[in-house]
Amino acid sequence: MSIFAQLFTAIMLGGAAYTDVRYKKVYNLWLLFWMAAGIYICGIKFLPPMAVTLAVLFIFHVLGMIGAGDIKLISLVFAYLGFKDGFIVAAAGMIFAAVYAFYKLYTSGILFDRLMYFKNYLIYTFKNNSINKYYDINKDNKNLALPLSPFILTGFLIWRLYSLCSMGI
């Protein structure tokens, strides 16, 4: 993987994190630009990791658990970094997001309520053998939505720092 791919990933994630925190949105135009840059630099080999990741993560969007922009962003991370490193970055970001989410729910005093909501969601889903959205912005508290891209950026920075330290740089 080239240093350009890593640099592009850092810039892409930084911009996405900014807009996600500031405007609660990862803009498609931003993602389209980075996809075009990736195809231009890496060629056609850029597309398969992106397409596979989009297909796998799409179910989380259908369930209302992850926004479409976040899924496209993670797919671009996989395309730029490859499956192994992309998975490490995404998994680290998700872990940081989960820890923060638990902290936020605990300090808000609603952790138990949300855990019961999730339990009831799972019971309803398996009992009725139907898939419904987990989070519905129209009926759930809008403050519960978490911008994911800053955590993916954090996962990237931790991964990059670890890579540099393990190389002895």
Rank of each mutant, 00 (worst) to 15 (best):
I3H: 04
I3F: 15
F4Y: 11
F4S: 15
Q6M: 12
F8I: 14
T9V: 07
I11N: 08
L13P: 00
G14W: 00
A16Y: 10
Y18L: 07
V26T: 14
W30Y: 11
W30T: 02
L31E: 06
L31F: 02
A36M: 07
I41M: 09
I41T: 14
P48V: 06
A51M: 15
L54R: 09
L54N: 14
I59E: 03
H61K: 11
H61C: 11
G64L: 02
G64I: 02
G67E: 00
I71A: 02
K72F: 09
S75Q: 01
S75K: 11
Y80M: 00
G82V: 00
K84G: 13
D85Q: 06
V89T: 05
A90F: 06
A91P: 07
A91C: 13
G93L: 05
G93P: 08
I95P: 04
I95L: 13
F96R: 11
A97R: 01
A97S: 12
L105M: 09
T107E: 12
G109L: 01
G109W: 06
I110W: 09
F118K: 09
K127F: 04
N128V: 08
N132K: 15
Y134E: 03
Y135E: 00
Y135T: 04
D136F: 04
K139L: 04
D140G: 02
L144S: 05
L144H: 13
A145R: 14
L146S: 03
P147M: 01
L153N: 02
T154S: 13
G155N: 11
I158D: 01
I158A: 08
W159L: 09
W159G: 06
R160F: 10
Y162M: 15
S166W: 10
S166K: 14
I169N: 11
